[in-house]
Write a protein that binds this DNA or RNA. Structure first.
Length: 432
DNA sequence: TCTGGGGTCCTAGGACCC
DNA sequence: TCTGGGGTCCTAGGACCC
């Protein structure tokens, strides 16, 4: 493989070790590496809590993993169980990225998720250390000293190498640093046989590769790339590049995509069988999603509805449900969007018990002035629109529970209970 | 596994147009 | 009309990530 045409930069992918659990430990004056602490979601719509994060010692001593269920967590007084405070984690994430900006220009910093960022240090590396590892240690120390948090760093010549170095090496390294280059890539990565561990290979793809006789990253690197592309489409071409540590797409894969849709979904506390109850939740979610979108001064040209059915006792792998999308005239009017959602639901639902409801808005565009629909009473439309905006404003100023539809107090409504959640989890304070 | 929640991207077939 | 070719839009569905 000739790497001379490939980009040779210096990228750091930095993540926070057990981020939520570490923040909670620091807040309590505990060392994040020594505390035995788990952050448990209190979202009670399913009745069973979810472990969002476990400290390294909680994982080691009690075998608790990040998405453990409540009932899997042993009862032990040595385990500190705390509720999530999403807003606090967002604040810490901002503080961390502020430190990163001292090492790279704004344009070379790419926050990837709440606990991961990519730094393109190709231009600035010489300023901060002799070797990439030295630069990484320096940044780690800064964050450790200022915020008390431990970070894990993957170093690569391109973003994908940095990501794999982070996931596959740094997390097991005693200095919490991993480094991949074009040169050491085969030695480091090809022996991997548990393909699911590799970023971008999920359960289904791993099984597909197994079926093709590909049992290791080395196997993947030595297939005929044209045949793989034939078999798996563009994914096949990407996987082949991945096996060689090549990142042709630059940031396209690793970079967090720009918001192109808004969606909300929830698991219901029980199976819903009554149409009016299902539609009530559907309206609430429609209202919520529309409200978020409008907050960003956008309107939607496409709506989608997801209705997941209750598990019927069949051992079917795939969960049954219906997913429908529909083009609409671009609008940011909640009543219009909700009407479309309900219509879509009624057209497709055949009475199955429902456990999961989701709403998506896409084909977004900047909403300018209200576009009047020719076929409806203009006064009514203007009034609807003004009403929506007033509600948004109240929610912005006084929180999401300031104004809720009276219908939400009815049986089946979940909005009130969920209003204080951030990302589906407890926000931890009243403003977000 | 008997249900967490919010996202994006890719593929394929049908409808429709010129 | 035993039958062209290229393109776009729409919808459904699959897969993956944090």
């Amino acid at each position: 493989m000739d790497y001379s045409q490939e980009p040779h930069g210096m990228f750091l992918m930095i993540d926070n070790k057990s981020f939520y659990a570490s923040v909670e430990s620091v807040e309590r004056g505990l060392n994040p590496l020594k505390s035995v602490l788990i952050v448990m979601s209190e979202a009670d719509n399913t009745g069973s809590g979810l472990v969002l994060a476990a400290s390294p010692m909680a994982k080691k001593l009690f075998g608790i993993s990040n998405v453990s269920r409540q009932y899997e967590v042993p009862h032990d007084e040595n385990i500190l169980v705390v509720p999530p405070r999403m807003n606090l984690y967002i604040q810490k994430n901002l503080a961390i990225n502020k430190i990163f900006r001292e090492y790279v220009a704004d344009a070379d910093l790419f926050p990837y998720s709440i606990d991961e960022s990519i730094l393109d240090m190709t231009k600035s590396r010489r300023l901060f250390g002799k070797t990439p590892e030295a630069v990484a240690r320096r940044i780690q120390l800064r964050i450790r000293t200022e915020l008390g948090l431990y970070t894990t760093v993957g170093i690569g010549e391109n973003p994908v190498q940095a990501k794999l170095a982070l996931d596959l090496q740094a997390k097991h390294d005693h200095e919490l640093i991993g480094r991949l280059t074009y040169e050491n890539f085969p030695e480091a990565i090809w022996p991997i046989t548990n393909l699911e561990k590799v970023w971008s290979i999920g359960h289904r793809t791993a099984a597909h590769l197994q079926r093709l006789g590909i049992h290791s990253m080395g196997d993947l690197a030595h297939v005929n790339p044209y045949e793989l592309r034939q078999e798996m489409g563009m994914i096949g071409a990407q996987l082949f590049a991945l096996a060689w540590g090549i990142d042709r797409s630059k940031f396209h894969q690793v970079r967090p995509p720009k918001e192109k849709s808004w969606s909300n979904s929830q698991v219901l506390p029980r199976d819903y069988k009554v149409q009016s109850e299902i539609e009530l939740v559907l309206r609430e979610i429609g209202q919520q999603t529309t409200s978020r979108m409008r907050h960003h001064r956008q309107q939607a040209g496409c709506i989608s509805l997801y209705v997941g059915f209750a598990w019927d006792g069949q051992a079917d792998d795939g969960r049954s449900g219906l997913h429908r999308t529909r083009r609409i005239d671009p609008t940011d009017n909640a009543q219009t969007i909700i009407r479309e959602l309900v219509t879509l639901f009624r057209e497709n639902w055949e009475g199955q018990p429902v456990r999961n409801i989701g709403v998506g808005l896409s084909r977004l565009s900047q909403s300018t002035n209200l576009q009047l629909n020719l076929f409806q009473n203009p006064q009514r439309q203007i009034k609807d629109d003004r009403f929506d905006r007033v509600i948004d404003e109240l929610r912005d100023r006084f929180g999401k529970t300031a104004v809720i539809p009276a219908s939400s107090l009815m049986k089946g409504g979940t909005m009130l209970r969920r209003a204080s959640l951030v990302g589906g989890h407890n926000g931890g304070n009243s403003f977000d």
